[in-house]
């Protein structure tokens, strides 16, 4: 085994993947950055350098600040609700019982499905006139709102679909956290006659927190990109539900303004990169703690 051979092997194994990633991620990003200083359009050539005009427009555009606020609200509500509901479900699932694997797997199915397909299909459930949700509400003598067309309501309906899809994710991570707590800690607490709430607050929560933090960061970066559900339910140009990604789609593909869209994308990216950096740092620290 010679050292020279090993270097060749390393190169052969690692470079194809890294090269592809650079070609399809780093290069487009730089290209995007360049485009954002031009007035390029989707059809036709003749892009001109326009300096920071696109950025000036992004920051003065009420559409952008609206989408930014809406996306932030969506991320906070979605991640918060999913965390609470998922954690509650995990607490209920903690003890062993017959058929647990089946229950768990069934409950986890939504997170594996296609958001675009399920978003479209949820339109049938939430339809104001013939949707099953309103039919059931009607049978119970309750109000039957127009879930997906009412201006004040559709944002929350999309949030509901997101909660349906991603609560399982939080439940699965929470369950892993709960099951990793050694039983002897609980036994010790029992001997000390600690109350249920004290046990939860002083033992369960602190020990699960690192894992929950990881789940929250992962979900947040994902929710920040929210695109599929909005496209499949209300479309890209609905003022009440427009997120950063759908606004970007509208600007580039419907209005054809590539230059302006690229500026939007760059601003979005700054936020994404910031979150991703937090995530990788967090992961690094978590792994360091594990190794110790």
């Amino acid at each position: 085994m010679t050292y020279r051979n090993e270097r060749g092997l390393t190169w052969g194994l690692v470079t194809p993947a890294l090269l592809l990633l650079v070609l399809f991620n780093v290069f487009p990003l730089l290209y995007n950055l360049a485009l954002s200083f031009t007035n390029a359009e989707l059809v036709g050539d003749g892009a001109r350098f326009v300096g920071g005009a696109n950025y000036a427009r992004v920051f003065s555009d009420p559409l952008y600040s609206g989408a930014l606020r809406r996306t932030a609200l969506f991320v906070c509500c979605a991640v918060g609700l999913e965390l609470v509901l998922g954690f509650a479900f995990a607490l209920a699932l903690k003890r062993e019982f017959r058929g647990k694997a089946l229950v768990l797997t069934l409950a986890l199915v939504p997170m594996m499905l296609s958001p675009a397909v399920m978003g479209l299909y949820w339109g049938l459930i939430l339809n104001g006139n013939y949707g099953v949700l309103n039919q059931v509400l009607g049978e119970l003598g309750l109000a039957q709102p127009q879930w997906l067309t009412d201006r004040g309501l559709k944002f929350w309906s999309i949030l509901l679909i997101d909660v349906w899809m991603w609560t399982p994710f939080m439940a699965l991570v929470s369950l892993a956290g709960l099951q990793s707590i050694p039983p002897h800690i609980y036994e010790a607490a029992e001997i000390d006659r600690a109350g249920a709430w004290t046990v939860f607050r002083r033992i369960t929560l602190p020990l699960v927190a690192p894992l929950l933090g990881l789940a929250v960061l992962l979900r947040a970066t994902d929710a920040l990109k929210q695109f599929d559900l909005v496209m499949a339910t209300t479309g890209p140009n609905d003022g009440a539900t427009q997120t950063l990604s759908t606004l970007l789609y509208q600007v580039v593909f419907r209005d054809g303004k590539v230059g302006l869209g690229s500026a939007y994308a760059c601003v979005v990216l700054v936020v994404v990169i910031a979150l991703a950096t937090v995530f990788t740092r967090y992961l690094d620290r978590l792994k360091g703690a594990e190794a110790r």
Partner: peptide, 11 residues
Amino acid sequence: FMPPLAVVVPV
């Protein structure tokens, strides 16, 4: 973590 929409134009 890259949003698809942010790299799709160059692609």
